[in-house]
Amino acid sequence: MLIKQDFLYSVIELALQAGKIILKYYKNTHFELKKDGTPLSQADLQSHYFLTHELQKMNYAPVCSEEDPMEYQDRKDLPFLWLLDPLDGTKDFLAQNDGFTVNIALLKNNLPILGVVYAPALKELYYATKNNGAYFCQIQETFNPDNSISLNCFNANNSRKPIACISNFHNTKETQEFIQRYNLETLKLGSSLKLCALASKKADIYPRFNGTKEWDTAASDIILSESGGIILDIETKKILSYNKPDLRNNYFIAFSKDQINGKIYRDFHS
């Protein structure tokens, strides 16, 4: 299936508008705790309400959002499904470190075919559609596709040590051991920006050895894959699957294009 540009650009505009909504609450540090112990802010909720309403108006597919997950029985046989994280990186948002994003993904037969990731505080936009490449755009006032740059034009710096992305808030003992084992440099980033950093060659490896959900990765998954990289499930040694009965991802390692078939990649498959 070929995603038409007008459709993609409409989704991008929704992400930009959601970003404006989120920024209205940026200095508001009030939050509640959800049942799983993660924070929930007004920015999460207002972005969720806006995006869910607008995506549903497209009459294309139901919406499964972090703030309103669909039951498996209602989504298991859907050919198309929106996976939405209206504010990925709420802890980064509350810490006011700019490292939060809006994530919008469209699944077809349980695999992402469209992904939009927008970091409103940084004005950084990443997007991709299946078999049409991945792109980056620095937003000024509005989105202009003529200002977009193919992520395949970004060159890796092969003279440096490989860089591993790590989270601002979710590092584990296993992650630190992995970094030490391979003598990696590190780059701290929030939300989906870690996977986007691999796509744009700012970093090379992203080991994730603690919990994520499908809406955390789906949009940036296709951005990374369309840039030539890959996310591999630790347990299955295959690409991540989506629209599972349990929306939690297995632990994974993501590789930039230049790391595929490198030492860590080969060790992963041994």
Rank of each mutant, 00 (worst) to 15 (best):
L122V: 09
P86L: 05
K123G: 07
A121Q: 08
K57G: 07
Q96C: 08
L114F: 04
K108Y: 12
F100D: 00
L45K: 12
Y49M: 13
Q96T: 09
T101D: 05
P79A: 10
P69I: 10
I113K: 07
L83E: 07
Q73W: 10
L151C: 06
Q56D: 15
I104Y: 01
N110Y: 08
P120V: 00
N131C: 11
G99S: 11
C137D: 09
S65P: 06
P62R: 05
I113Q: 06
A134I: 00
N144Q: 15
D98Q: 11
A61C: 09
S150A: 13
A119P: 02
V102F: 02
F100S: 02
E66N: 08
E71S: 15
Q42I: 13
L83T: 06
Q138I: 12
Y118T: 01
I104K: 00
N97Q: 07
Y135A: 03
L83F: 05
Y135K: 05
Y72E: 02
L125W: 02
P112D: 06
L125P: 00
L122I: 10
T52L: 14
N103I: 06
L151R: 03
T142E: 14
K108N: 11
K130T: 10
L84G: 03
Y118G: 00
L81A: 08
S47G: 07
L81Q: 04
K108P: 06
F93C: 00
E71R: 12
N97G: 07
L55F: 02
N97M: 08
E67M: 10
Q42Y: 12
K76T: 09
I113P: 03
P86N: 02
G99E: 12
D68H: 15
L81I: 07
D44V: 03
I149W: 09
D92P: 03
K76W: 09
D98F: 11
T142S: 14
V117E: 04
Y127W: 06
T129M: 08
A119W: 01
L107M: 03
L87Y: 01
N109A: 10
N144F: 13
E67A: 08
L94K: 03
Q138L: 13
N147H: 14
N110R: 11
P39Q: 05
P39L: 00
D44E: 05
C64M: 12
I113M: 07
P69S: 12
T129D: 09
Q73Y: 11
S150L: 10
Q46V: 13
D74S: 12
N103T: 06
D98P: 00
N152C: 14
K130R: 12
L125F: 03
I149K: 14
L78Q: 12
D146P: 08
R75C: 07
E124P: 04
P112H: 03
L55C: 00
T142H: 15
D88G: 05
Y72K: 01
D77N: 15
Y72R: 05
